[in-house]
Write a protein that binds this DNA or RNA. Structure first.
Lengths: 208, 208
DNA sequence: TTCCTTACGCTACGACCCGTAGCGTAACTG
DNA sequence: CAGTTACGCTACGGGTCGTAGCGTAAGGAA
């Protein structure tokens, strides 16, 4: 979570896992109250009832701390089988949108992505802690659609992977852009319009 | 640009427009060298050969300054008629992607969007300075496609507006997400795959 | 238990940036 | 000319950063 994690039987006093939980919780609370830019390490430490030095012993800085604090929110994402590809897409869109409604996610997500443009290790951390958690849903949804006969099984494995990446960027990108850039709500109506656009395409959606 | 702009014949020494240009140029340079998080007002002032107080006389802070500094990059966006809707979409995707290749845009865009989640006035500034510049292209592209007969003219004006907004979020969102979150290049191949997905839909693109 | 090792809380610190006030000077208007 | 506004410069209090140093707490090993 915080550092290299050699769970080998180490000697000495172990790190308090209660402190870990308290710090991440305090980080989310601080994000809600202050937002990304005004969040400070001192404030988080105070809220968590922990010394500031303890934070720096576990996280390199604000970026890494916030990524870990927000990552757990993405564990909530699920993809129950709603019976059809369209229903599954719409469901995941609304679920992701609900996540972006949370102020701690809104203010933190774009900020850490912005930082990651100049920090490779941060980008990898975001990928494994957040992005991969979302991409699972795309792969799962495709499998189901293929099993239902709604999508073909693809021959070329690398082409299939590229396609999954494409669809992931389209879905996640559209929801994020709608929510944070256009600052308009992702309601059922929008999700339904987006779904039919994704499934039928521009001309097809207009006809149907 | 910087403030309320009552171009009424004002008395006193006028603001140096040369300083404006130097400041915005210095801001972009500082973004390239330092990135968003390490950019400081003092640094920009020094680069521009201007007193720090001059910056604060024109911009409320780092957020507003960077938005204005980056906004001009979006003036480059154009939509030459490439003969078909598909070609126009692919063209605008590649053009937007090229813009996001510039380090000053990469590091600044997501950062100011993140800040805008807690600052309404900043959000409005981004909308008028950046977002609207992009949305023009969508409207223009749709007009052309309708003139070509590739898309229907829509009866309901509000539904048409919602549809344009949807398409805008899908295109811009996908490119941004691919570039900054997935951190993969938007090359001709990806743009072509995205275009056929957008036009034909999931099933259609797979068949074709 | 006693030693060894590591984590913790606390304090203090230099470095840096923020945003503003105050001043004298420069530039333009009527 | 006088009046008005912008500019450069300096200085300041307030805040955050990230680290060092210390004594203490909590585990494992002999």
């Amino acid at each position: 979570m915080s550092d290299t994690d050699p769970r080998a039987t180490r000697t000495g006093r172990p790190r308090s896992i209660a402190a870990d939980a308290a710090i991440l919780e305090a980080t989310r609370a601080s994000l809600v109250d202050l937002g990304w830019s005004k969040l400070t390490m001192s404030d988080v430490a105070t809220r968590a009832g922990v010394a500031k030095t303890t934070l720096y012993r576990r996280w390199a800085g604000k970026n890494e701390l916030v990524v870990d604090a927000v990552a757990v929110l993405f564990d909530e994402l699920e993809l129950p089988d709603r019976g059809s590809l369209a229903a599954d897409v719409q469901g995941v869109v609304l679920q992701f949108a609900a996540l972006l409604e949370r102020p701690e996610a809104r203010t933190a997500l774009m900020a850490v992505v912005a930082e990651s443009t100049r920090d490779d290790s941060l980008r990898h951390r975001i990928r494994s802690a957040i992005v991969d958690r979302q991409k699972r849903l795309v792969l799962l949804g495709r499998e189901r659609a293929q099993a239902r006969g709604e999508l073909r099984y693809e021959d070329d494995a690398s082409a299939a992977a590229r396609n999954a990446d494409l669809i992931f960027d389209v879905i996640a990108g559209a929801v994020v852009h709608r929510t944070l850039v256009s600052a308009e709500p992702v309601d059922t109506e929008w999700a339904s319009g987006f779904t039919s656009l994704l499934l039928l395409g521009l001309a097809g959606a207009q006809a149907g």
